[in-house]
Amino acid sequence: MRVAVGGTFQPLHDGHKALLRKAYELSRDVDIGLTSDEMAARGRVRPVKSYQEREKALRDWIIKEIGVEPRIFKINDPYGPTLTEDYDYIVVSPETYPTALKINELRKARGKRPIEIYRVECVLAEDGKPISATRIVRGEIDVHGNLLRRRGE
């Protein structure tokens, strides 16, 4: 089984970790597309660490927690190699699910078989809302979803 997963992965939080764990549960043959600096900066108001810093944090976590040397490569668009290479699964969050649907639509137009989409639900913070990089950067929660400030403070 060959699995694709992608993202910016910064800050690397428990939601990202759930996505990565699922990818490695499905197979040890996982391709991780990590957004380029240019792609990561597009449309964002928050700062994003460099590709090298994000890649190191991702690699270090996977080696420590999953126990494998990850295959991480730079992507410059939302599709990476999924339009040209064959995968059995693509692991996505609810936020990236529409991109997976688009990938399969584009694959079909190219005469390629669809990739089975495995959607991992959001990991919730202690307030019941999804953990997200935006909330972490705003200082609402930490990478584990613990509240850092209460409403009205």
Rank of each mutant, 00 (worst) to 15 (best):
residue 82 T to V: 09
residue 120 V to R: 06
residue 116 E to L: 13
residue 62 I to C: 12
residue 69 E to Q: 12
residue 8 T to D: 00
residue 94 P to L: 00
residue 83 L to D: 10
residue 14 D to K: 10
residue 89 Y to H: 13
residue 124 L to Y: 13
residue 91 V to W: 06
residue 35 T to N: 06
residue 47 P to C: 00
residue 84 T to Q: 10
residue 78 P to H: 03
residue 70 P to F: 06
residue 4 A to L: 15
residue 55 E to P: 02
residue 132 S to G: 12
residue 136 I to L: 12
residue 59 R to C: 05
residue 116 E to Q: 14
residue 90 I to F: 00
residue 33 G to L: 08
residue 130 P to Q: 08
residue 63 I to Y: 12
residue 11 P to C: 05
residue 101 L to K: 10
residue 49 K to G: 05
residue 22 K to C: 06
residue 4 A to G: 13
residue 128 G to T: 10
residue 15 G to V: 05
residue 58 L to N: 02
residue 79 Y to L: 08
residue 65 E to Y: 08
residue 43 G to E: 13
residue 6 G to Q: 11
residue 40 A to V: 01
residue 86 D to P: 09
residue 112 K to A: 08
residue 138 R to P: 05
residue 124 L to S: 14
residue 109 A to I: 07
residue 76 N to C: 01
residue 82 T to I: 04
residue 104 N to S: 03
residue 16 H to F: 09
residue 75 I to Y: 01
residue 64 K to S: 13
residue 25 E to Y: 05
residue 97 Y to I: 05
residue 105 E to L: 07
residue 106 L to Y: 13
residue 21 R to S: 09
residue 7 G to Q: 02
residue 40 A to F: 04
residue 28 R to S: 15
residue 4 A to S: 14
residue 12 L to E: 10
residue 126 E to I: 10
residue 6 G to H: 07
residue 111 G to Q: 09
residue 27 S to D: 12
residue 84 T to K: 15
residue 36 S to N: 02
residue 106 L to V: 06
residue 141 I to S: 11
residue 64 K to E: 15
residue 12 L to I: 09
residue 10 Q to I: 00
residue 60 D to P: 03
residue 47 P to E: 15
residue 59 R to M: 06
residue 108 K to C: 10
residue 91 V to P: 01
residue 69 E to N: 14
residue 44 R to C: 04
residue 94 P to S: 02
residue 114 P to R: 09
residue 131 I to G: 01
residue 56 K to Y: 14
residue 21 R to F: 12
residue 72 I to H: 02
residue 42 R to T: 02
residue 89 Y to I: 01
residue 57 A to M: 13
residue 139 G to R: 03
residue 30 V to H: 09
residue 119 R to C: 04
residue 109 A to T: 07
residue 86 D to E: 15
residue 36 S to F: 02
residue 47 P to M: 11
residue 19 L to C: 05
residue 99 T to I: 12
residue 30 V to A: 04
residue 24 Y to K: 09
residue 81 P to W: 02
residue 68 V to I: 15
residue 97 Y to W: 06
residue 99 T to A: 02
residue 22 K to E: 15
residue 110 R to K: 15
residue 62 I to H: 03
residue 66 I to Y: 15
residue 75 I to H: 01
residue 13 H to Y: 08
residue 88 D to V: 08
residue 122 C to A: 13
residue 49 K to T: 01
residue 114 P to Q: 08
residue 56 K to D: 09
residue 79 Y to C: 05
residue 6 G to V: 05
residue 87 Y to G: 04
residue 89 Y to T: 03
residue 10 Q to T: 01
residue 19 L to F: 04
residue 115 I to M: 11
residue 18 A to G: 02
residue 134 T to H: 13
residue 54 R to F: 07
residue 120 V to N: 06
residue 20 L to G: 09
residue 23 A to R: 07
residue 131 I to P: 03
residue 38 E to G: 05
residue 42 R to D: 04
residue 9 F to C: 06
residue 43 G to W: 10
residue 37 D to Q: 11
residue 91 V to I: 09
residue 73 F to T: 02
residue 115 I to W: 09
